[in-house]
């Protein structure tokens, strides 16, 4: 528990690391909006090219980005499938009669069961899922003996396919962009940058400094609380609680036995911390000087100008074509 790293900061020296967190956040927002403005597959592919270029110059390994994309794989698959199934305009590219018969139904259940039981031994889980789904579809399309239970037609249209592809690329771009931000910025710098960007919100009585203070304390206490949780789990385990197995009901009880002491400890801690902060002359909302300040360089201006150029091009492309 001594080496907890919060966030996914990847040490490096490229231009992305030299940038001010403020400019990085602003650039990210401009590029995201630009991505949403684009409505055409070719344009979005050009955008993807730009993002890949940023990755290349920024010296970020594609493998790290791929890891960042992993959690949204299922989401990508779902949007892709829905787009293909529900958009029925454009040219018909492919259609197939899917029939469910007395033979294929149990066969299908068997395949799904087999997938369910074996998936934990397969290294490429996502690929395995795709192969299984395709296998079932192919079987339903080709193998049709016995009395028919139900049947439907799977039609894939041009617009569906391009729409699905378009949305997928858009999602990938957005996730990649935000991954670049978190990979190249330390959580504390990111926090400081956010604080400065949110500062104008004081007009509507949102105190950015307080929000930043809350985030920074949360960041500081995550490892401490994890350590605490670990200790409590060990203490409970030594009295016979098994955190690894059990039915859902037992699991809930185990989590409660962990949560209750965690809450009590956290309240005690926050009380102590509030005392310590006040004793050191902290007054919420009062002006403070800062140890860390941000400095805006020419590089930041250049990058922002570049992003604005992309933004304007995106609008132009959207209006013209």
């Amino acid at each position: 528990m001594k080496n907890i790293i919060i966030g996914q900061y990847l040490p490096g020296t490229s231009f992305l690391y030299k940038m001010d967190p403020r400019s990085k956040i602003i650039a990210l927002m401009i590029l995201m909006i630009s991505t949403f403005i684009l409505k055409d597959v070719t344009h979005i592919l050009i955008m993807l090219g730009v993002v890949l270029l940023i990755l290349k110059i920024g010296g970020i390994p594609i493998a790290r980005i791929a890891r960042g994309l992993k959690p949204i794989m299922i989401l990508l698959l779902f949007t892709f499938t829905f787009q293909i199934i529900f958009i029925k305009t454009g040219t018909l590219i492919f259609d197939a009669e899917l029939t469910l018969t007395v033979f294929t139904l149990p066969l299908m259940i068997f395949i799904i069961l087999f997938w369910y039981l074996t998936r934990r031994y397969i290294k490429f889980k996502f690929l395995y899922l795709l192969i299984t789904a395709f296998g079932i579809l192919t079987m339903l399309a080709l193998y049709t003996p016995g009395s028919v239970l139900s049947s439907s037609t799977l039609e894939v249209y041009g617009d569906g396919l391009s729409g699905a592809f378009f949305i997928m690329v858009r999602l990938i771009i957005i996730v990649t962009l935000s991954t670049i931000l978190t990979l190249t910025t330390k959580p504390t710098d990111l926090n400081l940058g956010l604080e400065k960007i949110l500062k104008p919100l004081s007009i509507i009585r949102i105190n950015a400094e307080e929000i930043a203070m809350i985030i920074s304390i949360a960041l500081r206490y995550i490892p401490t609380l994890l350590d605490e949780a670990n200790k409590i789990m060990l203490a409970q385990a030594s009295r016979g609680v098994d955190f690894t197995e059990g039915k859902l009901k037992d699991k809930v009880m185990q989590i409660i036995s962990l949560l209750v002491p965690m809450f009590i400890i956290s309240f005690k801690r926050s009380d102590d911390l509030a005392n310590a902060m006040e004793a050191r002359s902290f007054v919420p909302g009062k002006r403070r000087t800062r140890l860390h300040t941000l400095s805006w360089h020419n590089l930041d201006t250049t990058v922002i100008v570049f992003c604005i150029f992309i933004f304007i091009s995106a609008i132009t492309v959207r209006v013209m074509f």
């Binding site: 920074s216 304390i217 500081r220 403070r288």
Partner: peptide
């Protein structure tokens, strides 16, 4: 310990 790092914590009171 308020700061995220040692220097942040030493600075905290002075910042205030």
């Amino acid at each position: 310990f308020v700061g995220v790092t040692v220097e942040d914590d030493i600075a905290f009171g002075m910042e205030n």
